[in-house]
Amino acid sequence: MAGTQYESELVRAGARAQGAWGQALYLARQYPLGTIGAVIMAFFVIAALAADLITWRDPLATNAPLSLAAPSADLWMGADVMGRDLYSRIIYGARISLAVGIGSTILGCALGVLVGLASGYLGGWFDLLMQRIMDIMQALPLLVLALVFAAALGPSLQNTIIAISIPLVPSVARVIRSNTLALRELAFVEAAQAIGMSEWRIAARHILPNTVAPLIVLATAQLGSAILTEASLSFLGLGIPEPHPSWGRMLSETAAEYMRTAPWLVIFPGIAISAVVFGTNLLGDALRDLLDPRQRG
């Protein structure tokens, strides 16, 4: 159980870890890389939420005299070819990236959980069918599948989220299914069955909470790859369309064309993508260590 492992870690640390701050501090000391990841993520989340407050230029407003302006006190990261403030675009871009990352992860996990639980719990022909469908989805590389879906659905924010979430489904479903299968055999589920709880109630009350830990580990790993996939799709022109400030889009043709006269157009969005994915990876690693000690490295 998620709670128990985390508690046990704290117990091992002894009575010194008192209160929320104490616990946080303890965890920070124990997982320095994870803490860095959490800080990076917190930074981007806050930037995305407070975008209106921490920028002073409209990320969409074009301005001829500022075309390709170099970074300065007013334009922290310079301006793109249409004179749009790159700093504002990066900050607002965090919204898009996080929306796509979190949205597609949640959607993918929800679908995966549903399929995995149903498949593991119901078994039989349903399980067989689902397994085959998951096989099919896993036989195609993430980007290829996302590409075809993105082309089929057309370029927009929602469609990008859907296109990216679909390839995430099978890996989530797999994990949930195997956990469900393993848990079904356990004593407390049998006991619940013995006292006459319905199957769906057992699934909801007992099996789901027990799969939260691996799910969190998986979701954080997916978050990073979802953000990367969005960037790749947008780079290839099949993701988030203009004028939304997507980081991947910012790196595509326009930026690359001016990469020597205006290298900031290539450097800053690239750093933003890398940093946010780096953050999720660090955080994901720490969460895995914390929640799933079997895989600890």
Partner: peptide, 9 residues
């Protein structure tokens, strides 16, 4: 970082 850098970047 290898896992974080977009390949095209």
């Amino acid at each position: 970082s290898g896992l974080s850098l977009p390949a095209f970047w």
